[in-house]
């Protein structure tokens, strides 16, 4: 369990995949020898919220007390995560695949894999768009009686998460089983590492939305 007295640099050193999360939280500069409490004070951040995010991304079993998670801050963080995937993770996946294709121009399976990736990314971007346009704005909305009795979008979100997670996990398993014999192992490793990191991030992102965001939005609608 990560506490306010832990040094942020130690945390990142133990789990380098936390660095993009720390960056999205606006804490990636002037880390030095500072504890999480000190970094939060320096950057004027909500300590309870930051600890909730860091612990969730460090442990698959952890979820913060929803009362310690302020809705506007959570949505801002989730939106930054979307941006990170759109502008960093997805281009990185395509870059690895492009390099593989250049090295193995006659490998037809790479075309099949690229087709799958294209469809998956299109679905993921539509899902992100749906969250940005339909779900996140619910946080600042006043609901009338009719709207309070209907919340189909929130129910739809949960199902979409399961699909998005399963497809990414399936993709990784299938890629491992079909590594071309003459492929550059470093490239394959890069691709699989990006996928595994993406899968973990998606899982934690969906946990926040399913277990904290959606119940909070439901509560807003029923008040």
């Amino acid at each position: 369990m990560i506490t306010e007295n832990d040094k942020l640099s130690d945390l990142i050193s133990k789990n380098i995949d936390l660095l993009p999360v720390v960056h999205r939280l606006g804490l990636s500069t002037q880390i030095g020898e500072k504890t999480i409490h000190e970094v939060c004070t320096l950057h004027k951040k909500d300590l309870k919220f930051i600890l909730g995010i860091l612990n969730t991304y460090s442990s698959a079993d952890y979820l913060p007390n929803p009362e310690n998670v302020e809705l506007t801050q959570l949505i801002e963080f989730l939106s930054k995560t979307h941006e990170f995937h759109k502008h960093t993770t997805i281009p990185r996946l395509y870059a690895s695949l492009e390099q593989l294709k250049k090295l193995l121009p006659n490998e037809k399976r790479l075309i099949i894999i690229e087709n799958f990736l294209n469809k998956y990314i299109a679905k993921l971007l539509a899902h992100i768009d749906f969250e940005e346009k339909e779900i996140f704005p619910l946080a600042g909305k006043k609901f009338n009686q009719e709207e309070k009795s209907q919340s189909p979008n929130l129910k739809k979100l949960f199902k979409q998460h399961t699909n998005v997670e399963n497809e990414l996990s399936d993709f990784k398993i299938i890629l491992i089983r079909h590594i071309p014999a003459d492929a550059d192992m470093e490239l394959i490793h890069d691709l699989l590492h990006t996928l595994a990191h993406f899968e973990n991030e998606q899982r934690d992102h969906a946990r926040f939305e399913d277990k904290i965001l959606i119940p909070k939005l439901f509560a807003l609608q029923s008040n």
Partner: peptide, 21 residues
């Protein structure tokens, strides 16, 4: 197969020549 999604099964089938891609 350890593959849960329809898209994953479709990819598996395509890579194993079980469907005309």
């Amino acid at each position: 197969l350890g593959i849960k999604s329809i898209s994953g099964l479709t990819l598996y089938a395509a890579l194993n020549n079980l469907v005309d891609t």
